[in-house]
Structures are given as C-alpha cells and as structure tokens.
Simulated scan of single mutants.
Amino acid sequence: MDSTTFLFIIEMIGTAAAAISGIRLAANKSFDWFGAYTVGLVTAIGGGTLRDVLLDIPLFWMQSAWYLAVTAMSLATVIMLRRQLVRSDRILFIFDSIGLALFCVIGIQKTIAAGYPMWGAAVMGVITGAFGGVLRDILINEAPLIFSKDIYATACLAGALVYWLVMLLGGGYVCQGLACAATVILLRVLALRYNLALPSLSAIPVNNNK
C-alpha cells in the first residue's frame, strides 16, 4: 500500500467517525437534518481546513467530493441507527476518539510531506485532530472539550511523540501512523477508565480578612 492510498483510507474513516460524533451531538440538540449535516461536516473538515490554510496548500475538501459524500452517509447512518447511536455516551466517545486519532495522523503526515519539521507536524497534528471538535462544540453551544480537563489535545501530543519515535527507529509510514493513532485512543480510554484529567486552572481565592 502506497502512502497516498493509506492516507486516503484513514481520511475517510476519520471523516466518518468525526462526522458521526458531530451529527450525534446535533441530534441531542434536536437539530434538523440540514443542521445536523452541517455540524457533522464542520467537525470532519474543520481541523484540516485550518491546517491547510496555515500550511498554505490547497484545501483538501475542495479537491474531492468524498468528504461531503461520507458526511452524508454518516448522517444516513445516524438516522437509521438513531436509537443505538444517539442515546449512548460511549458511542460518542468511541467515534470522537477515532476521529481525533486519525486526524492527528493525517495532520502530522501532511505537514511532514509539506517539508516542515517534526515539532511543527506535532502542532498541526493537534490542530487537525482537535479543531473540528472545537467548532462542533461552539455550533451546538457547548464548552469546547479541548479546553476542559479531558485528555484531548494532550493525547494528540503524546501520539505525535510516538510517531516521531517510530520514525527515528526506522519504522515505515504505516507503522508510524498506526502507533500514533493507537497511542491517542489508548490514552483517551485510560483517561475515561481511571478518571484521569489535567489540573484545572482556577482563580486564587481572595482573603478578605487581610
């Protein structure tokens, strides 16, 4: 499998997973079909759009109708399996984590292919993975998950480090991508299982007795 085919496959899987997570949340807010499709599409392409703008390369979704079509198929899937997909928070977690992990891989690989160093690719991996979710949460009027205590962007950074390590060890692009994605998903699962979170930054209480 060449790198172009591998990247296309994980993009389509990531697009479907991210779109379903967005559409599922839109269904919780009783959006109509068009509104749910819009939220799903923004979730799927938001991070990659910002990445391509920052890298000054053509927008990926303007070059192929697959992203719009996969989002439409994701909407149809949620409509047909509404009872199973909408009511379970675990389903949202699964699709959100898969989309986050695969988009992180895509962001890293596309940034490296554009000639940027690994540290820049790590940043773009986080942006590609997480920014679509930020836009999704804003559209449905929720606090963005990335800014809460949940292990989200941190998982992408860890995945990027594993990607770099596998690269240094001479692993191929498939091994690099799979190791990165597995790390992101594993950290998300462990965070949920053991209630792991980053410390919150809160204001220091003022002592009025002084």
Rank of each mutant, 00 (worst) to 15 (best):
V184A: 07
D32E: 08
V134S: 08
A27K: 02
P58Q: 03
A160H: 02
Y152A: 04
S74G: 09
R136K: 00
L102T: 06
T77L: 15
G40L: 01
Y173H: 11
N195E: 15
V53D: 01
Q63H: 02
L55I: 06
T15W: 02
D89C: 08
S202A: 12
E142Q: 15
A27I: 00
G120S: 03
A155T: 09
A197T: 11
K29V: 07
F147C: 11
D2M: 06
V189Y: 11
A182S: 12
L139N: 05
L198K: 15
I57K: 14
K149I: 10
K110N: 13
G133Q: 04
M167F: 12
C156V: 13
A44H: 02
T49D: 07
S202W: 10
A36Y: 00
G46R: 06
Y173P: 13
A122W: 00
F147K: 11
V86D: 05
S200R: 09
I98A: 14
D32A: 12
L135F: 15
L178N: 12
D89P: 00
D89L: 14
V86T: 11
R83A: 14
T5S: 15
F93V: 08
W33F: 12
L55H: 03
Y163M: 08
A197D: 10
L85S: 13
G47L: 03
A114L: 05
R83G: 10
A101Q: 01
G48F: 04
T128E: 02
T4R: 14
R83M: 11
C175L: 13
V184R: 07
W33L: 13
A121N: 05
M80F: 15
F147D: 10
L198A: 14
V189H: 09
E11K: 12
A130I: 13
D137K: 06
L68G: 09
L187C: 14
C175Y: 10
I106K: 08
L75I: 12
T183V: 06
I140F: 07
R83S: 15
V105T: 05
I108V: 01
G107W: 01
L187P: 09
G171A: 07
Y67K: 01
G170I: 10
E142A: 14
L198V: 15
L145M: 14
G120R: 01
R83E: 08
W164F: 09
L192I: 03
W61T: 08
I140V: 15
G159C: 05
A153R: 02
E142W: 08
R87I: 09
F34D: 09
E11F: 03
G177D: 00
D137I: 12
A114G: 06
T4P: 04
G46Q: 01
I45Q: 03
I106P: 00
L100P: 05
A160I: 03
M62T: 12
I9N: 09
P199R: 12
S97G: 12
A179V: 14
A18K: 00
G46Y: 00
A121E: 08
L139E: 06
L192T: 11
G171H: 06
I138F: 09
I91Y: 05
I98G: 08
P199K: 12
G107Y: 00
S64H: 14
